[in-house]
Design a protein around this nucleic acid. Structure first.
Length: 816
RNA sequence: GCCGGGGUGGCGAAACUGGCAAACGCAAGGGACUUAAAAUCCCUUGGGCUUCGGCCCUUGGGGGUUCGAUUCCCCCCCCCGGCACCA
């Protein structure tokens, strides 16, 4: 008979149902938010409640975060672990359209399913503070956040070239365009000119960047911080003016040292000076070129063939350094959205300019030379990698090392009024307008007399009407505009007929502040309660995927900074600690429906139980790297739990546990406590579980079921297998939750054996081992080694040249 | 092209600041128990030699530093993720 089937065998389904019910009854996971003395806000990225239900990626992420939260709780913190749903957005809306069901009907169903699954996996969630971004009680405050930005002058409207997804029929943020395609649906993104709402995130570029290097504010996964740094894309350089007949042409460059090599200028096709600069013989060609570029979608412009194209304007501008008149061209390799939309062509030292100059037969001048080269050395290609180079053919600046040349030329430009040092960012302002239905309406009313007027706060929320006809169209106007009873409204300023803003806001605005709301869900008169926020924020630990490194995680930081600057928040960084978890693959391959290798958590939990599933997920690889999910692997953790169960039973039965403990067991026990604690602190879950397995194996080997050890074992296991641990804990005689127990401490004096085995190497190769008391001195160990027959075989008759001794570990005898 | 993260047994992996490579688990093989199977328990398991004492090789490849390198340095190859004409 299997121990699974025997009466006292471990029955995950029963145990898990019992403890989930009991946690709910006892309010085990509901901390007192107003009185917690050692608050620990344990946050994980709230999911989008898809119809498919919880994905393994979610379960992996949440389990890892939950393990950490439970560990903190056992260490005496009051842990707040909220959960909510990011339910607005295009993905929900598209799915609803596909199913022919209204999202308002679909979402609650999906949320109920998610809540069930999240409870089933044993998360320590405080459901009293559940939120959904689609709830008017929530998005009322999302709209309020918009208004705060508006009042702070950080929200503005402009007609701009935007990324238009022809399939989703909406504008996308730059962050949502992946290699020229829509992040959601994969359709090629087009360029459109629309009136859009933007947030001035670029005003915060320097702070967003600077705080990344401030450990007092942020302790983030290095990969995430790097991704943000690259995304913000700070470049130091200079803005230089090139006088022309149409006025000065401003150019941004990171390489002012190459100014003397600037033999032409290139403007982006959208540059405002193009018309003024283009003279008759070239007008027709220019018009055709600009039209062709405008018609082209951003994809082929950005990622298509990189063959250079361009048209001459017929005009020239003066290079302020050389005094020469140089031709002004227009080419699409210059982007209007970066820098000034115009560049100085330096073909000698820039690959793209070289290519362009070669194609259009423009002069190529060398202005930098390496050691041993003269300015006369011909170039066979652009000299781009110019470290250790010096300026040549650069008038008074010739012979200066390149780095000094930058400073000298910038100083000269500033002195002569030709330009100035400047810092530019790749980061663009955040476009938050979406011409869709399923989102919070932007709380603005457009009045012919007053212009855009913010909806008064007392009138929030601007409720999203439930309409049957929410299909988007090609007009670039939200479906809401088709609903007059909602659209037409009196102007809050003058009272005359006006109309509502019909765009809804980006979902990333919903998720940009949810961590503030969790603490205060019961208040309907304020977005977040000051006392609560003061106690619980910034977030102590945030765990999530790196796919949000530049989206959610950047926007959240920005919004927090704005609210901080308004005096509404004491901190400017919302997430003190952030860790990115890895990704799970199945049988060595990325999971996908077409491949048919998608892991459905419900099925595994039904078969193995949540505790085994959790333990396996945390064991299968390093948490921050992810790992390979294999069905065969679950057997290991399950056998492990079965053996712990037996151990607990053995402990229950034992009326007399008086056997003295092996010293080796005591050492192993203390070592394990240290290892598990340290491993959990750094999210090294797989090795923490391995350490517990080792201790279990050691106990079984000597048939030891010492009560004190078993109890501490159960505590250390509880973050991974919470229901199982509760059951064991109860059977070991406790009336309270294992999560109210104290995390075990270890005696540093007992984490090492009193006698050590020391590896003896001869010339770096391990040849033997000797035993010595802990902390033995070098001469003692050398003496012991020299008595060892194997060692003597290698050393006898040879001269001992050197001795390397690593205390308690290794002795290396170098002989020759 | 640039920026991250990787490459270690049949497989997932471990090795913290340079110090006994392969812990822990899976799978496989052998044995015990059983009428039998499952479950469980015990043993073996990086490769190659072996006179059974041991010996040699092995962390993607090549070089280097060091008494000693999976770990540090240089060059190269491959895989995964992100960015991509950003001046």
């Amino acid at each position: 008979m299997s121990p699974h089937d025997s009466d006292d065998g471990y029955r995950p389904d029963q145990v898990e149902a019992k403890w989930q019910a009991r946690w709910a009854e006892r309010h085990t996971n509901e901390p007192d938010l107003d009185r917690a003395e050692r608050p620990f806000y344990n946050l994980m990225m709230f999911p989008y409640p898809s119809a498919e239900g919880l994905h393994v990626g979610n379960v992996f992420a949440f389990t890892g975060a939950d393990v950490f939260g439970r560990f903190q709780r056992l260490r005496g913190k009051t842990v707040f672990e909220p959960m909510g749903f990011d339910a607005f957005g295009i993905h929900s809306e598209n799915f609803a359209l596909k199913m022919g069901t209204h999202p308002a009907e679909l979402i609650p169903r999906n949320i109920a399913n998610f809540r069930r699954q999240l409870t089933r996996m044993g998360g320590m969630f405080d459901w009293r503070h559940e939120l959904s971004t689609t709830d008017p009680a929530y998005y009322k405050w999302t709209q309020w956040v918009f208004l705060q930005l508006y009042h702070a002058g950080k929200a503005y409207r402009k007609k701009a070239a935007v990324n238009w997804c022809p399939r989703d029929k909406t504008v996308l943020a730059n962050e949502q365009v992946i290699a020229g395609a829509c992040e959601r649906c994969g359709a090629m993104v087009e360029q459109r000119f629309l009136e859009q709402w933007f947030f001035r995130i670029t005003d915060y570029a320097e702070r967003l960047l600077g705080n990344l290097d401030d450990p007092s504010k942020m302790d983030w996964s290095a990969s995430t911080a790097t991704a943000q740094r690259n995304w913000i894309g700070r470049s130091e350089g200079a803005e230089i003016e090139f006088p022309s007949d149409a006025g000065p042409i401003r150019v941004f460059t990171t390489r002012p040292d190459t100014l003397f090599g600037g033999t032409f200028l290139v403007l982006a096709p959208e540059h405002p000076l193009v018309d003024a600069l283009t003279v008759p013989p070239w007008r027709e060609a220019m018009e055709a070129y600009r039209k062709a570029i405008a018609a082209r979608d951003l994809v082929s412009r950005k990622v298509g063939e990189k063959e250079k194209t361009g048209v001459f304007t017929g005009s020239t501008a003066r290079n302020p350094a050389t005094g020469q008149q140089i031709p002004v061209w227009v080419a699409d390799y210059v982007l209007m959205e970066y820098g000034t939309g115009a560049i100085g062509g330096v073909p000698g030292h820039d690959e793209r300019d070289f290519e362009f100059a070669t194609k259009f037969r423009l002069p190529i001048v060398r202005v930098l030379a390496g050691p041993g080269e003269t300015g006369a050395t011909p170039l066979d290609g652009p000299a781009v990698d110019t470290e250790g180079f010096r300026l040549v053919n650069s008038g008074a600046f010739s012979e200066l090392p390149a780095a000094l040349g930058i400073k000298a030329i910038v100083a000269w430009l500033e002195r002569e009024g030709h330009g100035k040092a400047q810092v530019r960012y790749r980061l663009h302002d955040w476009c938050i307008s979406r011409q869709r239905y399923w989102g919070p309406p932007i709380p603005i009313i457009h009045c012919d007399g007053c212009g855009p007027v913010p909806v008064p706060e007392k009138d929030l929320p601007v409720v999203l009407p439930v309409i049957a006809d929410f299909q988007p169209d090609d007009s670039g106007i939200s479906p809401l505009a088709r609903h007059k009873e909602w659209y037409e409204v009196a102007c809050p300023g003058c009272g005359k007929p006006a109309h509502r803003e019909t765009d809804v806001s980006d979902t990333f605005l919903d998720s940009g502040w949810y961590y503030l709301r969790f603490t205060s869900t019961e208040f309907d008169d304020r977005p977040f309660d000051d006392a609560r926020v003061k106690r619980w924020l910034p977030v102590a630990s945030y765990i999530g995927g790196n796919e949000h490194a530049v989206l959610h995680l950047l926007y959240s930081r920005f919004l927090t900074m704005v609210l901080h600057d308004q005096g509404r928040l004491a901190f400017e960084e919302p997430f003190r600690k952030f860790r990115a978890h890895g990704t799970i693959v199945k049988d060595g391959a990325k999971m996908s429906k077409t491949r048919g290798n998608v892991v459905i958590p419900d099925q595994y939990i039904a078969r193995w139980g949540a505790d085994t599933f959790r333990t396996y997920m945390m064991f299968l690889g390093p948490y921050e790297e992810g790992g390979d999910f294999r069905d065969e692997g679950l057997a290991g953790p399950r056998r492990f739990l079965d053996k712990v169960w037996e151990l607990v039973q053995q402990c229950e039965r034992a009326t007399l546990v008086g056997n003295e403990l092996h010293h080796a067991i005591v050492v192993k026990w203390h070592q394990t406590k240290q290892r598990v604690t340290e491993d959990l602190e750094r999210l090294s879950y797989n090795t923490a579980i391995a350490a517990l397995m080792e201790l279990l194996n050691a106990l079984r080997a000597v048939n030891c079921a010492e009560r004190k050890i078993v109890k501490e074992f159960v505590i250390m296991l509880s973050p991974f297998a919470p229901h199982f641990a509760e059951e064991c804990w109860e059977r070991l005689g406790s009336k309270t939750s294992v999560f109210d127990a104290a995390w075990p401490s270890w005696d540093p004096g007992l984490t090492e054996e009193s006698e050590m085995e020391i590896a003896v190497q001869i010339n770096g190769k391990t040849r033997s081992k000797v035993r010595a008391v802990r902390g033995a001195s070098e001469p003692d160990v050398v003496a012991a080694a020299r008595r060892d027959p194997t060692v003597r075989k290698f050393t006898d008759g040879k001269e001992l040249k050197k001795v390397v001794y690593v205390k308690d570990r290794l002795l290396n005898l170098v002989v020759g």
